[in-house]
Nucleic acid binder design. Sequence first.
RNA 1: GGCGGCAUGGCCAAGUGGACUAAGGCAGCGGAUUGCAAAUCCGUUAUCCUGGGUUCGAAUCCCAGUGCCGCCUCCA
Length: 487
Amino acid sequence: MALKIFNTLTKQKEIFTPLKEGRVGIYVCGPTVYDHPHIGHAKSYISFDVVVRYLRYLGYKVRYVQNITDVGHLTDNADSGEDKIEKRAKLEEVEPMELVEMYMRSYYDDMDRLNNLRPDISPRATGHIPEQIDLVKALIDKGFAYEANQSVYFDVSKFAEYGKLSGRKLEEQEMGARIDINPEKRHPADFALWKRAETGHIMKWNSPWGAGFPGWHLECSVMSMRYLGDTLDIHGGGIENVFPHHECEIAQSEAANSLPFARYWMHNNMVTVDGQKMGKSLGNFVTLKDAFKKFSPITVRFFVLNTHYRSPINYSDEALEGAETGRERLQNTIRNVRKRLISSEGSEGEDVWKAKLEKYKGDFEETMNEDFNTAGALAVLFNVTREVNHLLNSVEKASKGVLSEIDSFYRVYGGDILGIVPDQSLQIEEKEKDFELEDSLIKALAETRNELRESKQWELSDKIRDRLSELGIVIEDRKDEVVWRKR
RNA sequence: GGCGGCAUGGCCAAGUGGACUAAGGCAGCGGAUUGCAAAUCCGUUAUCCUGGGUUCGAAUCCCAGUGCCGCCUCCA
């Protein structure tokens, strides 16, 4: 059983083998930090977070690089228009780098809440200007690029394989269909490597061609190769970047050093809202901060993982509510296991459960090995949960041995790999001072209520339960205990 | 105009030639449990967009049609 990855380059699932045994270098296109992250970022970065987590689970030493674009991304298209950062900075009356800091923090803040692990390296485009200039020089020297009026363009006609990722042929494209053809270019499909800074442009650097700034595609080539070598194992990003962004990355990288740029190209599909693509420029995007007001970040994560990364998902309150209920069910069982663990003892039945869980591990790996089928992986978790609930409801008490086997299963498969099971949910909660007070108060009420129940004073005992329910506290009368939880 | 993708129960969503008499979640219904609830468990709800074809056998492959979506401007 081996991990298979759908490679956009070959349009099929391939068995994954890294270039260097035991090590994986992965580069994922990061955000342009000029606004708060939205639900689309969540899908993309949760998907790749799980890819990285699963590769690590399989034993690979992974280096995960995800850039921060803080210059060169223009409003109209890759080669014209205003710099997005500069434009927004003017609007908010701050320095461009101040804006970048602001939204970079916002980005990491949201990603942390989604329980995405931080990349190992988060290089910034502005921190790699000399390297980018070097690559442009190399491309000019090799005849793949030309200077025109202090800008430098990549000559796509010189790179025979241009189009191999996206399946596009230059002659079939309707050039200038949607954007004006830039007269500086020899061929309309040529793309900017370096742009001259027009008067008033703030973010600019000196170069052999005059003051200017790097083209958008350039940073990814430069930074990925700098930290992962000339050939990456995996390059990931959103499907909308296949063309032109990734196609251009391949062209400039492979033209420069005549080596394959990336061995596996992975692209995640898009998030739609009401069936329509969500885009920054369309204005219909849902920011994560808004989503988090209604749903917990882990619910958003669950929602994303419930669909394969290459399928689109439609964001709606109904769908998120469904995800929330499902996630809570899972969480409840895990909490119950952890609660029982504290007071349990012995090890009866441990072997039986080890064998059971072994089977589920097999199921989990089998489905994840099929191009990271996280929806299938969640199904395995629910199948385990059904069986665990049986155990929890049975008359004989589960032993400590069994419960800790189950707990570690959830920690590894629900926690380490899928990231939807908080590490220490119970312990953290119980360490909080407020929690202790809250717990004693509710338990005091529950005791009183139980006395009322014993004397069959249903009206009063129900009133207590209803009042607590109004406050978001759910009371469950189990056979031998009363438990409470927040809704 | 060119390129690509998708269409599975009320909703979401796996599965992509034989163990599918189609996973899992949400919602519903019936039952167990409960003083009533909650939680949990059990049962129940699909022949896979339409029409052809290939095959011993198709949700899964091919052809045609219909519908939806993405890319060819920036976007994760």
